[in-house]
Nucleic acid binder design. Structure first.
Lengths: 200, 200, 200, 200
DNA sequence: AATGAATGAGAGTTCATTCAT
DNA sequence: GATGAATGAACTCTCATTCAT
């Protein structure tokens, strides 16, 4: 007998739920989204969500952690292969924006929706976020020591400002027209601004 | 019959409610805050809130509009008096961060809490926010036309990145230690970075 | 303007909820009764229940505590005025069954429904119940010391057996026909049996 | 393929499920126990429970019926062999308490847990329970006719009181320290009390 | 104007039961 | 027979809002 929902098959339920969650969270926001909305969008029963995620909060957290983990692992494995702080910082900017290119919903979830759960933001997201900022700050410090960057700015402040700039760009892109390719084109300009700003 | 709360007097209820709202929204987030929490913090009855604000959403919106209005009016009245795009942009940065200095709770409300009401963010805040970005972009365009800034960057992108950087700094400050004076000190460094980045 | 529900008036809500709870708990059992059933029976909104009781469990607990408190306070204040252990024990039996006479629903709640919340039974009811058993045992001990009762039985065992007999009679009465006056008539016979059983 | 659970073998699943059910019902109560808890305790899959029992309710009912059936069949086959109503009644008391001696969990299930399912108690357990009461009442009637017992008490009331006394003793034993041998020792004292109480 | 008791719609989560394997 | 992933109905409790006083 065929299943009611033709799309249903083997063990693909977890990713399907995550993809559905990105869509509906972006559309309605976190609090306005009911678990049953996610379930319907994913083509599973309400209870099935709870076989894969402990709570609605954890569902949102998973979305965030997946991506930041991806960014962090890239920075850990690929960045060291590059030569020069300038090249590295430029690549960080390209990667952060490139990750969201074509994924407007995800961009909205990460820039806006994530902040809708205070508890989540303060207690769970903070550590990963701090790690990311410190990774950027380390690149800045490297550049300062190599004489590539000015030394009269705090590396951590540069990291916070840079992340903020990228986040702001992604947010306005996601909430606005979200033109295809715009994010990647922006990356080049932002990198220019930041690297010039850091020029000794 | 005497009032229970001695602090209560004449028509000071509206500002008292707003101040209380900033405090409790910053502490607990928008959704985790009950209207009765705000009422208790303000020393008024639940129903009194509704004599001054149509809904909980409008209460948050009022907080936001008050401040952005202040920023915008400053930019409209004071900025034209200054000479040169560089001076103007530096002042914008100082004012945006200076407004939050010493008001950690307000900073948190504007950078984090405001995004917790999707409806508010999308329908009400967006226009005011766009006006603010455009005011910054106008300064950038001025500078480009005067030959003070490079011309190969989009003024609106610069505005988005600058606002994002300031927002990111304010947010990490508010969620972190929020050291006294740190925000104002940051303003100088950020202005340096941005102005150098824009140097032709 | 008249209220929707004519029965609604001043501050009579708490007792009305309690009375409704006895009725519906007795009819359907504790777990099969929804809070909204109690609310409808009491003529109040669901939320109103929670203005007077912390939870559904506490509602049941209140029912129990009210009555046991009544029994215990009777035993503390009235029993000492009586002469002789036999008179006292007979009175205890009459009071316990008399309390339920004409209150079939309450009898069912106390003998059956109360045991449906394990947590309640083990954590809250147990201390009060123990106090009650000990009050009975004390009367037995008195009788033994005065030579009115045999000394070769444990007073606590007598208390447990006596309480069990009364509880069993109340339960079968409540679950059965619950004839009017039957409970009070039974009291005399049970008292005879117990007092004869204790005769030296 | 080898089974995960080494204990699993031939067709022993039904008794294993019943034993597990007694344990977990006694520990957590009927409603707080999930079918999956029983399954895990029994070392079988959730679905397996349903191969042997129609529902969770039936599982509890089976526990009860097994034991009462045992009592009833004893009374039908063994009691007639004894001489005299006094001997018979004493034996009934010894058997009812003896059945539970060393089985604290079972005692708790029969005295407390069984009453947690109203439907079960009222619709299914009642007939068997009535049969048991009547069996006791019959012994009392016999004794009255033989002149061994007083005639001025209702046999059914005596049955209800006796059963209640035994149930109360078992319950307080199960919920309390449940000392080894205490139940059997109590049986003698209760029998003494009851038989003296019935003395003409 | 101010109060705060009352409302009741609404949502996250649990868990008995099923059935394809 | 045995499994356990999947289901989805059901229920407690919360809280923004109202309105009689």
């Amino acid at each position: 007998m065929p299943r009611k929902n033709g799309a249903s098959r083997g063990g693909d339920k977890r990713p399907r739920i995550l993809e559905a969650a990105v869509r509906v969270f972006a559309k309605n926001g976190f609090h306005a989204t009911r678990v049953s909305d996610v379930a319907r969008a994913a083509g599973v029963a309400d209870g099935t969500i709870y076989l894969y995620f402990k709570s609605k909060d954890e569902l949102l957290l998973s979305l965030f952690e997946d991506r930041v983990e991806k960014l962090l692992s890239y920075m850990r494995s690929e960045l060291p292969k590059l030569e020069g702080a300038q090249t590295k910082l430029r690549r960080v900017i390209e990667v952060q924006l490139g990750l969201l290119e074509g994924e407007r919903d995800l961009a909205e979830v990460l820039t806006v929706i994530l902040r809708q759960s205070t508890k989540l933001l303060k207690h769970y997201a903070a550590p990963k976020f701090t790690a990311y900022l410190e990774a950027i700050a380390t690149v800045v410090t490297e550049g300062q020591e190599a004489g590539d960057f000015r030394r009269d700015v705090s590396p951590l402040l540069v990291a916070r400002a840079t992340w903020g700039a990228l986040d702001g760009i992604a947010m306005t892109w996601a909430l606005g027209r979200a033109e295809r390719g715009a994010l990647v084109r922006s990356a080049g300009q932002v990198a220019d601004l930041v690297l010039r700003g850091l020029r000794p």
